[in-house]
Design a protein around this nucleic acid. Sequence first.
DNA 1: ATGACCTAACTTTTAGGA
Length: 260
Amino acid sequence: MWVACWNVNSVNARLANVLAWLNEASPDVVCLQELKCEDHKFPHEEIEALGYNCLVHGQKSYNGVAILSKLPIEEVRRGLPDGEGDEQARYLEAVVSRPDGSAIRVASLYCPNGNPVGTEKFTYKLAWMERLQAHVQGLLALEEPLVLAGDWNIIPREEDCWDPAVWSGDALFRPESRASWRRLLNLGLTDAFMAMDGAGHTYTFWDYQAGAWPKDHGIRIDHLACSPQAADRLAEVKIWRAVRGNEKASDHVPVGARFS
DNA sequence: ATGACCTAACTTTTAGGA
């Protein structure tokens, strides 16, 4: 089964692209980020018509995450458990059940950007990663297949961007951000791309500006983090790079992992 | 050449993205 994630940069502005990719790739489970709409404005009918159950955690204008699944969805969690007072829709978790009776827990997450560094935005990013870390510790104790998929807004390595010098002061590449990603992995999670490929200069995002796409000036910030029980079943990873060249493309492309 | 974009919103400019 395929589990994928994609920051669509407005699900309604991107609807034609989303439907086309779902038809082409036909993933079993998809975690979407940056819906940029409230729940009632999510294009439920169009996506359900392709055979997906839609679980939506949106908000007006910004953020918003969803889980699309061809499999039955249960055990839903909206937001991080300590999210009292946090209005930003950045986390959605559910368990999907496979026909063979096995289950996989999936989280769709949209880590804060954090720019500019030195402001409360960067503080919020690091605090959000700490909150996620605390929650994931509890999830790992369940010892079940778990995939945390989404836009992490973190460039893990120098070779995950086209020019480290350009990104050195950016919230996506700051040592504090990269350390928070490493701390999370050190709990026992596996970056699916690193386990199955790991090649440098393999990107998932290209800015709309400055001809970043034609020049291949990208960054790798969309990741699937797998628990040991999920990592043991990793069979393949894929980045749908060509999607970036389509009309009205999102600045991110879909990333997915196949599990046996 | 150090340029160049896109989206939502009570829009005619701003905030946010990365």
